[in-house]
């Protein structure tokens, strides 16, 4: 009898092998409170380090929208601007920030929590999930600002506004999948961390955050169709179509957003789980 046979006979398992998929999902679900608590504690800790604390959650998006408004409102000609530019810009910037925050938070969730990973064993997927919960907890001030911008520019509330939380939920699921993929990629190929700022810049410019896609690309139907496939654009545009009179929600937009919200977390979860045993390793 070899040692391997002996180990098997006594029911020992090989160390470092990841747990089976179903068991992994169950373990993660059992510890969901950990992900939520980690998110809220991380928020508190981040607030404690600067003097204005919690206020930054409101101040930062306001300053950001004002900056972009100044730059794109002045530089960009009126031909690329939608009718209600302020509401368009605010919704674009805040929704983009949410998805971008999940992506960045996810990509740092493994590399930035090495101490936690090396000391305690738990399903690592909770870390990128926690990053999304954190973004959700921080999302109410921009959401309030977005509503104020709508009201300020005479976009009066309609019944369809009630569907906005549904879109945000779909967006959170999409971002969760995105965060899981980013987490594994960044943990395995640290060099990618250097490229992430450029990637987010590019996505920012092609997602119709501050200019109306149809006004710029209207003459090039092929490129326009490709741009419309971009999930960042889809989620932003769907929210706008629910809140602004200028746009109408289409079935196509709903289906695309729902599709992204289902497919992305599944792909992300499986992709992340496949490397579970490697997170926190030295090599």
């Amino acid at each position: 009898m070899t040692l391997a046979e002996y180990a098997q006979k006594h029911g020992l398992k090989r160390v470092g092998a990841r747990s089976p998929f179903i068991e992994y999902i169950k373990d993660s679900w059992d510890r969901r409170v950990f992900a939520a608590t980690l998110a809220s504690y991380n928020n508190e800790a981040a607030d404690a380090r600067n003097r204005l604390g919690r206020w930054w959650v409101v101040l930062l998006p306001t300053i950001q929208a004002a900056t972009y408004g100044l730059i794109f409102g002045v530089i960009l000609g009126a031909h690329a601007r939608p009718a209600n530019f302020i509401a368009y810009l605010f919704s674009g910037v805040f929704l983009f920030n949410f998805m971008n925050g999940c992506f960045q938070g996810g990509s740092n969730s493994i590399t930035g929590n090495a101490g936690l990973i090396k000391s305690l064993s738990f399903p690592r997927v909770l870390l990128p999930i926690s990053a999304v919960i954190r973004e959700l907890l921080n999302f109410w001030p921009p959401l309030v600002l977005m509503v104020l911008a709508m009201l300020f520019t005479r976009e009066w509330p309609t019944w369809s506004w009630l569907l906005v939380p549904v879109v945000i939920l779909l967006m959170a699921f999409f971002s969760m999948g995105l965060g899981m993929i980013a987490a594994r990629l960044n943990a395995q190929f640290r060099d990618l961390g250097k490229l992430i700022p450029f990637m987010t810049r590019i996505i920012f410019y092609v997602s119709g955050v501050f200019f109306a896609l149809d006004k710029v690309l209207g003459s090039q139907p092929v490129i326009f169709a490709i741009f419309k496939f971009n999930p960042f654009y889809d989620f932003i545009q769907l929210t706008r179509s629910l809140m602004m009179q200028e746009f109408a929600p289409t079935l196509e937009l709903w289906l695309q957003c729902a599709g992204w919200a289902v497919v992305m977390p599944i792909i992300g979860f499986i992709y992340f789980w496949k490397a579970e045993e490697r997170y926190g390793r030295d090599d």
Binding site: H10, G11, K13, R14, V15, A45, A48, S119
Partner: peptide, 22 residues
């Protein structure tokens, strides 16, 4: 070679801080 264990081993090492800001 290989290492087999009956449960997932937990390692306590020097230096690792869980969450330094909390």
């Amino acid at each position: 070679g290989a290492i087999y264990a009956a449960a997932r081993p937990v390692l306590l090492g020097v230096g690792a801080v869980l969450l330094p800001n909390l």
